[in-house]
């Protein structure tokens, strides 16, 4: 313990009076902050009305500098089974994404390599083929976060898949829509501990004030994804969800129940999100302020007012 307790000096920490220049800087900064937020608000709700179903991501793939010209097919198969299989088949027909059989004949190596690593950027760059895929599947491919080496490995596998992973989509059966809804809202917990769907997603008819808005509305996800929905639920291959659900996957029964629920609500139209809870919050704020004022309404008549002695 130090025993040199100094008296507060003129230049004590952060206690020098502020100059007018600093004030101007502060106000400029505040104005910039306010304008930025206001601008974002305008951009979000007036200009950018249509948001893509899956948010473009900024995750940057690792690059280790010296990519092998030719990837390893074996490693590529592993990566494919980990990262791609939820949406793609090789010769098994289209899922959430296209069937990748002979994909190397449809596009150049360079394009595929770029696409595998940065599908979000390629699409955002307005690439024609990517745009066609987006329109056809109504889904932007999430960035799988692969390095250039990994992408080459996947490509090597796609060039020569050997056909042994061709899979057929097996649709989940026997799910109960009611149970699916309970899982969606969270009244029945997910077995592996993931947060309930409603935290981030809305569907028509879920709760008085609706579901969350971090992720897209899922009311018509059934017709949007068609058969792909079951594999989407199975792997949840969306970049935002991967971090959370990679080690907390849905069980088979949960997938079946949710699938049944989405099938059931598919005929409903997705509705405009209601922001009524904001009014609740604002109302609560006003009530709280009023109560505070009433509780402390004598605050000026106690010690301080006499101290002020009538001066302003």
């Amino acid at each position: 313990m130090s025993n040199q307790n100094k008296q507060p000096s003129e230049k004590s920490w952060g206690q020098q009076p502020v100059t007018y220049r600093e004030l101007i800087v502060f106000f400029s900064l505040s104005v910039i902050v306010v304008i930025t937020f206001a601008g974002l608000l305008v951009w979000k709700y007036i200009i950018q009305v249509d948001t893509p179903l899956v948010e473009a991501t900024q995750s940057e793939p690792e690059s280790n500098g010296q990519p092998a010209a030719q990837g390893s097919r074996g490693s590529g198969q592993g990566i494919f089974e980990d990262s791609c299989i939820a949406c793609h088949t090789i010769g098994g027909g289209p899922g959430l994404g296209p069937d990748l059989e002979e994909v190397t004949d449809r596009q150049t190596r360079e394009w595929l390599l770029e696409w595998i690593q940065r599908p979000d950027e390629v699409l955002a760059g307005g690439d024609q083929y990517a745009t066609e895929l987006f329109q056809e599947y109504n889904l932007a491919m999430p960035n799988p976060g692969l390095s250039e080496t990994q992408a080459r490995d996947v490509l090597a596998y796609l060039e020569n898949p050997g056909g042994e992973t061709s899979q057929e989509i097996v649709l989940p059966e026997g799910g109960e829509p009611e149970k699916g809804k309970a899982i969606f809202t969270g009244s029945v917990r997910l077995t592996n501990g993931g947060p309930p769907c409603m935290s981030c997603h809305n569907t028509t008819g879920v709760g008085e004030l609706g579901g969350g808005t971090l992720g897209p509305d899922l009311t018509n996800v059934y017709s949007r994804y068609e058969e792909g929905l079951s594999s989407a639920l199975d792997g949840l291959p969306f970049p935002t969800m991967q971090g959370v659900f990679a080690d907390k996957p849905l069980t088979e029964d949960e997938v079946a129940d949710l699938y049944a629920y989405f099938e059931q609500i598919d005929q409903k139209a997705s509705e405009q999100i209601s922001y009524d809870f904001v009014w609740l919050g604002l109302g609560g704020f006003l009530v709280f302020s009023l109560l505070g004022h009433l509780k402390w309404r004598k605050r000026l008549t106690g010690v301080r007012k006499p101290l002020l002695g009538g001066s302003k």
Partner: peptide, 11 residues
């Protein structure tokens, strides 16, 4: 705008 954070915060 990204509501029900009390739930997804947990995730």
């Amino acid at each position: 705008f990204y509501r029900w954070g009390s739930s997804w915060y947990a995730g």
